[in-house]
């Protein structure tokens, strides 16, 4: 047995080499159905049909009007162009809202990269009203962790405090609404409306102006992020308790079933939205 064993060996290869790179670890990929969802395809088709046919129909109508009279043709063209222009402007705003979300993702990735963190931090500070005060300190810091800590203690904390304030206001409104609305069936509608409005308010606080589609995307992200923000449930309770510490409101809270729960949800929603909109993510809180 020992006679057939290959003797141990060590050899240096000729020529110098660069430092060895690690093998890429396989990323954990969740199974995907492949391609767009059925509902997405159907809705896209419907959208193309509605928009395309509307444009074609409007074009035909404008051509017909020109055939009748030049004045009528120009007037119809003006009306059609104004209408489609307004629709286009709305669509552009929606897209800008979506791009705003993507910008946060890019900024978040850059802040996680030690090579880009300083530039990303300065870029972000440039978009904030009080950012200039901190820019000097960030520019003078070399340690990526220290830069992140500065951002966390500075603008992220300010934004979180403002988001909390918005959440408190919404919580008080929800409380009052739940106490005033005669039908419990209306409660759900009010919560949905005020929640969507709160999401937009917090997004605007972070420099975004999400349209309807942007708000839906943001809500989806907030729902995902709310799992990690659930950690702040206790903190949110504290904020809500502070907001409802008025003795009369406290008494009412006991009398109106569900009012306190809805109010607390607003505070959590504000925090989750702030986490979704912040380039620091949940690390900012």
């Amino acid at each position: 047995m020992s006679e057939t064993r290959v003797p141990p060996r060590f050899e240096l290869e000729p020529g110098s080499i660069t430092r060895l790179e690690p093998e890429q670890l396989p990323a954990i990929v969740l199974p995907s159905a492949g391609g767009p969802h059925t509902l997405g395809l159907a809705l896209s088709g419907a959208g193309v049909l509605i928009a395309g046919l509307a444009v074609l129909d409007a074009g035909n109508f404008v051509a017909d009007q020109f055939a009748r009279s030049a004045v009528l043709g120009w007037a119809t063209l003006g009306v059609a162009a104004s209408g489609f222009g307004l629709i286009g402007a709305g669509a552009w705003r929606e897209l800008r809202g979506l791009f705003g979300l993507r910008k946060v993702d890019k900024l978040r990735a850059a802040l996680a990269d030690p090579a880009q963190v300083r530039k990303a931090a300065l870029d972000w500070l440039a978009t904030l009203p009080e950012g200039a005060a901190l820019s000097g300190a960030v520019a003078a810091t070399n340690d990526p962790d220290a830069i992140t800590a500065l951002l966390r203690a500075g603008p992220a904390a300010t934004l979180r405090a403002r988001a909390d304030a918005l959440g408190r206001t919404a919580a008080l409104q929800m409380f009052a609404a739940a106490a005033a609305v005669p039908s419990p069936a209306l409660d759900g509608l009010i919560v949905a409306w005020r929640g969507a409005r709160l999401v937009r308010q917090v997004a605007e606080l972070h420099g975004m102006r999400p349209g309807t589609l942007g708000t839906v995307m943001l809500l989806r992200r907030v729902l995902t992020g709310a799992i990690s923000v659930a950690a702040t449930e206790m903190a949110a309770n504290t904020v809500a308790n502070a907001a409802l510490s008025n003795p009369i409101l406290g008494r009412l809270a006991g009398d109106v079933a569900g009012a306190g729960v809805a109010a607390r949800r607003m505070v959590v929603l504000a925090r989750a939205t702030a986490a979704a909109c912040s380039p620091l993510g949940t690390n900012g809180s």
């Binding site: 290959v6 050899e11 240096l12 290869e13 110098s16 080499i17 060895l20």
Partner: peptide, 22 residues
């Protein structure tokens, strides 16, 4: 004979070394 071995950059040498310690 084909032997399973390892290869690394030797510290201070900037050259690759092949090792089959046994």
């Amino acid at each position: 004979r084909p032997i399973s071995a390892v290869r690394g950059r030797v510290a201070g040498e900037a050259r690759a070394g092949r090792s089959y310690p046994g």
